[in-house]
């Protein structure tokens, strides 16, 4: 564990808490992408199968369970609970059909694992989750774009999620310098970089809006 990784994890936790607060305070999921939440749940469930095979630490196991549980709860709220359910407008969230994200990532993961000779289902699903995570935020970014004016807490949610990914890049740099038996994984680096790059545009407008104290409005 290093400071960047821990700060990244905490930023991720804060983003989830902000999202829950955002849903509860506005009593609506308008501006929130259910698709992004569902993609994240697929990511967590496929990546954290090692909960059953490998024990790293109590911290690690607790966080994994917390991510799965909180994301499941958020999806349940939007899909089945009032008033979120009836206010949810699926047509705002039409970008990127889940299968068009899942299928290419599954194909790529299978290919990558064949090349690396990692043929266990757990390895293949882990690699799949690395690729899918890079795409998971895309529907949320499109929902933001659709409404243009971003509600305060929704903006914070995306900001903390992006900060988490940015901090993980610093964590990899740190680990490669200071951990003796650290092994690079370029697939993780590349999809982590792609994922972080997706947030850059949002970050720019977020920081500018905070600096000038105005509303966060995205350009057309």
């Amino acid at each position: 564990m290093n400071i960047f990784r821990f700060a990244g994890d905490m930023s991720h936790v804060v983003s989830i808490l902000v999202l829950l607060l955002r849903l509860r305070s506005s009593k609506s999921a308008v501006g929130i992408s259910l698709k992004t939440q569902e993609l994240f749940l697929i990511v967590f469930v496929t990546r954290y199968l090692d909960l059953f095979t490998t024990f790293y630490s109590l911290y690690n196991s607790f966080m994994k369970v917390a991510y799965i549980a909180s994301t499941t709860y958020i999806i349940w709220m939007i899909r089945f609970q009032e008033p979120y359910k009836s206010k949810y407008d699926a047509s705002q969230d039409s970008f990127l059909h889940i299968k068009f994200a899942v299928a290419p990532c599954a194909g790529l993961a299978l290919f990558a694992c064949l090349v690396k000779g990692e043929l266990s289902p757990i390895d293949i699903l882990w690699t799949f989750s690395i690729f899918l995570e890079a795409l998971a935020i895309v529907p949320q970014l499109f929902v933001l774009q659709r409404y243009r004016e971003v509600e305060n807490l929704t903006g914070h949610y995306v900001f903390f999620l992006g900060a988490y990914r940015g901090l993980y890049i610093l964590n990899w740099v740190y680990r490669s310098y200071y951990e003796q038996f650290y092994r690079h994984n370029w697939l993780v680096y590349v999809s982590g970089a792609v994922q972080t790059a997706l947030y850059v545009d949002f970050f720019y407008y977020y920081v500018v809006s905070k600096y000038y104290g105005g509303k966060l409005t995205l350009p057309t």
């Binding site: 990784r5 994890d9 991720h12 090692d50 095979t53 490998t54 790293y56 690690n60 966080m63 994994k64 991510y67 690396k116 990692e118 266990s120 757990i122 390895d123 882990w126 993980y168 964590n171 990899w172 680990r175 951990e179 038996f181 650290y182 092994r183 690079h184 994984n185 993780v188």
Partner: peptide, 10 residues
């Protein structure tokens, strides 16, 4: 299966 260090991350 723990071929890379990233596997212990969240």
């Amino acid at each position: 299966s723990s071929s890379s260090a990233a596997k212990d991350e969240l």
